[in-house]
Amino acid sequence: MISLFIDTSTKNVSISIVKDDKILSLIQEEICNEHSKYATSYVKKVIDEANIDANDLDNILVVTGPGSFTGVRIGVTIAKTYGYLINKEIIAVSSLKSLALSVSDKDIVMSVIAANKSSYYVGVYDSKYNDIICEQCVSNTRLLELIDEYNPYIVSDNFNVLGRYKFNKVNLDILKIVDYYKDKDTINYHALVPNYLKLPQALENK
């Protein structure tokens, strides 16, 4: 079972080829605003390094958000097009749950990704990675309330401090994410869209 994993939802880009329970190739890099330039070339690189043919994939997993709107669209467009070309359905991965999956042995994990200066995407998970609250976009104040309520271990895509709380930056554990999602529902490439969790500004103000 050969899987391609793509995450371009934050500035930490992860692109990898996983075969069964082994990483064949992996690029994990912090790149700012250059996702558009490098993402497909990285996909090519991991395929070449894994020594497989572009048509050999059994699975395509892509992080559909929430995160940077443009960033998410880059990965999702690649996944949709790739899926169409090799006629494979796609597995949509949550950016927030990916962060939670990358830590172990915590009772309650909260994943936080900054949406902008004053709001955050947040998810709260139990030790089996089930959603305790549904993933959502919240204000500073609401995030602090949630932290007080759940007293979670907090992970983020970036080092960050909010009030007296420190967010722990984690690198994605690709094997664990792929393993968790491998039996989850797939979605047709035509129907796959980003999970923005936020309206465009033009609609928010309407």
Binding site: A39, V43, R73, Y82
Partner: peptide
């Protein structure tokens, strides 16, 4: 970006 990523992916796979 959308058209470009699509085109690049086609070039990559084919």
């Amino acid at each position: 970006m959308i058209g470009l990523q699509c085109a690049k992916t086609i070039s990559l796979v084919t």
